[in-house]
Amino acid sequence: MQNNDACLIIKDLHANVGDKPILKGVNLTIGAGEKHALMGPNGSGKSTLSNVLMGHPNYTITSGEVIFRGENLLELAPDERARKGLFLAFQYPVSIPGVKVFQFLRNMLQSRRGTDVSVRDFRKLLKEKMGLLNMREEFVKRYLNEGFSGGEKKRHEILQMALLEPALALLDETDSGLDIDALKTVCESINAVAATNPDMGLLIITHYQRMLNYIQPDFVHILFEGRIVKSGGKELALELEANGYELIEKQFRQPVSV
């Protein structure tokens, strides 16, 4: 795949939860190495989009297509999507008691690479990436997300991203629940991962503009009622910050059909 090829192409994507349509025709193209921000008010479908892209079983695709690195993404199971280089940093990572972080991370990396990674090599890599995120080594002796603070959960998600080096990372409200210092550390490490992987595409999903102070997006999109209603450069985010979502709501609110 060449650098200038699109990493992800979403065409007229419609998706439901049960009978309720949430996504109503999303169009979005992310090129390799591009940083996109997806903003929108609560309930606009931001998290649905990230879950649909990762393949969460609760959503039904009713029409549209998604091409990821030249392949039809929607035909793949979540684990296949992951192995092909798609990554989702969860807004609310679940805890899995009894599963140790160290073993989990090592197995995860092995399944992504399709080869064994020796404990020694893995320790070395892990140490490097954890240093990047200001994480203490004791962390990996704990159980997956069990008893993690909000900040620890988010750091752990970004640690996984740093280890996996995905082709496209979806960051679902990674800023939520972080205080300003933690947000800064997390954003800096996202930037560091992006800098070492210049081909990595990023889709930053967020409600607020503050995360974009640290990560400069190339494009900003506004999702409203299941559609991208406005796209632009990073100035769009600042505009939103100044005016709030009210203007968008006035301009794009669909009349309710009876």
């Binding site: 079983p57 979540p78 684990d79 999507r81 989702l88 679940v94 995860m108």
Partner: peptide
Amino acid sequence: QRFYLMSRGFD
């Protein structure tokens, strides 16, 4: 839990 693990490449 299953989705979380599958999203990390576990079948």
